[in-house]
Amino acid sequence: MKSRTADIHLVSSHREVYEPCDDSFALVDALLADQTNLINHNPKLCMEIGSGSGYVITSLILLLKESLPNVHYLATDTNPIAARVTNETLQAHGVSAEVVCTDIASCLEERLSGLVDVMVMNPPYVPTPEYEVGVEGIASAWAGGENGRSVIDRVLPVVDRLLSERGWFYLVTLTSNYPSEICLVMRERGYASRIVVQRSTEEENLIVLKFWRDEDEESVVKETASVSFLTQFSRSLSSFVEKQWR
């Protein structure tokens, strides 16, 4: 089994497009760590939201290509330049995905629902003032609003809608995004989760989460009932952990 990921020298770039950085590498490392599971999962359709430079989607394709040559790939980005750069990176590696320029997956939500087996996202997660979210150009790659959650919180219901019955979702978060709270939100929608990669760099504490459907109704009800308490608890826990790290 080859474990080849995208070659950084072949990744296309543009000043208005986020270049592969620690967070991108953490996400690709998570996919690499889960490579065997992904191959056994045998996805038909994989998708990246916010593909930027194209480093992650290209790596995903390269990781699965040899064992699963017939997977269909989709990538979206809200920045038209990033969509173009994604395509250039794919072409430079001799692989292909369908690239669509859209906000999250808005033009695909209706018809693609329930069809995506694997979704990946390195979202704009940096806590910023709300007005910086969704502006044109490179800022759309990192500006995440309050707690860095503005875009993430919009993405979660879309993910739930697009994922197939056996769908998996990989998401990059920071500890300051309250990842345990994100897990609770997804728990309410019937998803289990785990940490695939956890990494502290000089600037940030990165956590790559994996979600999958786990329709154990009893636990959903139970979790939902105690959600407000847990939300409070996880927030204080997150800020405690954050302080410890600093």
């Binding site: 038209p80 969509a83 395509n87 690239v99 320029c101 859209t102 906000d103």
Partner: peptide, 9 residues
Amino acid sequence: NKGIPNMLL
């Protein structure tokens, strides 16, 4: 353009 639909509103 270049095979990419721009569906931005």
